[in-house]
Design a protein around this nucleic acid. Structure first.
Lengths: 100, 100
DNA sequence: CTGAAACATCAAGAACGATTGATGAAAAGG
DNA sequence: CCTTTTCATCAATCGTTCTTGATGTTTCAG
């Protein structure tokens, strides 16, 4: 998987999206189900533009999706991409276990 | 897992270590077994100080370990930490699948 | 000893990412 | 309409990270 440059680029982007504490805390909150930005600002005690910035980062990486409902925008985790990362880690771990 | 601040910090560090293309390519090479820096510079066509910088990042995150042998320093993957990441992704994915 | 090889570390600059406050856009209520 | 609410985007600033070339350290060979 790490032989193909496109995969390396893709994974680097995914991991970068998860490399920030604020974004990880967002992911933690979304584990309870989809949430609108206003609830996240309350739950995480973070400014609105700051959350918007990080939600965009997560969305650009494909880790979350958004859904507009009236004045509210709800964000939710994307399980497919999480599976993609898990598969990568699994393949690396197998390789490492075989040789180390 | 993402409720505890210490875990969030730890995971952010691990993901950051994997968020760089050069470091991911190093990991890819180490899948074939441990390697010394000189072989990595050849395989990845990267400068020596640049590789040293990224190997240090991987080592600080606990993803690789090093072993001196004469003039050479061999680097190898650390399967334990990879398992740690995999467990996290697994728990997140379960949570996501339950609610999305 | 001296020199060379392998690697780490340092310093300077460029590139990038995060935070903040202000402004913009869309939707809904009155 | 006009205002308010919710959220996105922008611009400025600041800190972090990456790259490069130079210098330092360790080890070994001659």
């Amino acid at each position: 998987m790490l032989e193909r440059p496109a995969d390396v680029t893709r994974l680097a982007r995914l991991f970068h999206a998860l490399s920030d504490e604020t974004r990880l805390r967002i992911v933690g909150k979304l584990l309870g189900g989809e949430m609108c930005v206003c609830n996240l600002t309350d739950a995480l005690d973070a400014g609105q533009s700051r959350l918007s910035f990080h939600l965009k980062a997560l969305k650009d990486a494909g880790l979350v999706s958004d859904r507009r409902e009236g004045r509210w925008v709800h964000y939710a985790l994307n399980p497919d991409v999480l599976q993609e990362i898990k598969n990568f880690i699994g393949s690396v771990r197998e390789g490492a276990a075989r040789c180390c």
